[in-house]
Simulated assay, not measured.
Amino acid sequence: MQSVILLVVALHVASGAIHSWKAYYTGTTGLSEFPEFVALNLIDDQLMGYFDSNTNRFKSQFKWMEDNLGKNYDEQETNTLQGYPAAFKNNIKVVMERFNQTQGVHTFQEMYGCEWDDQTRATNGFIQDGYDGEDFLSLDLKEMRWISPVQQGFITVQKWNKDSAYIESDKNYFSSVCIEWLKKYLEYGKSSLQKTVSPQVSLLQKDPSSPVTCHATGFYPSGVTITWMKNGQEHHEDVDLGELLPNEDGTFQKTSTIRVTPDEWKKNEFSCVVEHQGKTVTEDKIRTNNGESVSIGIIVGALAAVVLLIIIAVAGYVVYKKKQGFKPVSGSDDGSNSSAQAVPQA
């Protein structure tokens, strides 16, 4: 008897959601075909704004941003971010010297932002820096101090930890100002940001001896859990969970691949459980790369070019901490919560 792999999409009704605003800044050296500086702002993991040193312009991604933040928003962000490429280039040079490096490809990155749970009202702020894809600096808001896992970061840690007012300012920003602006953004863009789209889910397998991939795509918001079940029990062995990736239309996709022998499929019942908001869908047909099926390569290839930039931006959390934490350009509703501010010298 042929084995049957059931696909159960259990979309549990969500009682709340965790919303986020994040900024990713990437400085590079030694990459001639990549901008020396890239800035990305994301709201609930959707690209909200983009800047790079090649175009030298900031571009909003939603119409509601201009409607609520004003026509000058992009210009404000552009004016601020235009000073970043030179600052990042200088700081890369300083850190290269600390690592006794004189040439090669190097990156500075920083990820920072805040989260808000609309059910529990819990908040969280974070700022993480790194160099060449490795952790370099981070701010511990509970301990109110900067920490570094590498000796080359100690000089900066010692300097910044002496400035208690600086750390207190960051704490206030991440616990208050950032959260206030996150809520404003959610209200301004609620027509698109608070929508719910259920995932389309398929089981993909190239041939009977190949791994089986559970592919969920087209869903929004981004929160999704993919779990493999074996005979009704959670199964984690030989399972590879893919990264969350954005689709070109603002939705998301994610995969989970399981590796088992054909004999195991015959003797056991496997299922893939995808948890999201809404409803339950069941699928028991494995799609292959032949005939009417769609290969993962084609699916992934359909992503917007900006996905590459996002992947690069989140790869290592690198760059130096900006001196004041990101502050709003204007505290009024016709201003903007700028993601940019002065970059300190190492």
Rank of each mutant, 00 (worst) to 15 (best):
I5E: 03
S20I: 07
K22L: 11
A23G: 10
Y24R: 01
Y25H: 08
T26S: 15
T29I: 14
T29R: 13
P35T: 05
P35R: 03
E36N: 13
V38T: 15
V38I: 15
L47P: 00
M48A: 15
F51M: 05
F51Y: 15
T55D: 10
F58V: 02
W64S: 04
W64D: 03
M65E: 07
L69E: 09
L69I: 07
N79P: 02
A86M: 11
A87Q: 14
T102Q: 11
G104S: 07
F108K: 00
Q109I: 03
Y112S: 15
D118M: 05
T123I: 13
N124M: 05
F126G: 06
G133H: 02
G133E: 05
L141S: 06
K142Q: 11
E143H: 07
I147R: 11
S148T: 14
P149V: 06
Q151W: 02
Q158G: 03
S169Q: 14
K171E: 05
F174V: 14
F174P: 03
E180T: 14
Y188H: 13
V197C: 05
P211V: 01
V212Y: 03
T225W: 04
T227D: 09
M229R: 05
G232V: 08
H235M: 05
E237C: 00
V239F: 00
L245S: 08
P246C: 10
E248G: 04
T257H: 01
I258C: 00
C272G: 04
K279A: 08
T280S: 10
T282H: 08
E283S: 11
D284Y: 03
I286V: 15
T288H: 00
S293D: 03
A302S: 12
A302L: 07
A302M: 10
I312W: 04
V314N: 15
Y317S: 09
V319K: 01
K321F: 08
K321Q: 08
G325F: 00
S330I: 02
S330D: 12
D333P: 02
S339I: 04
V343I: 13
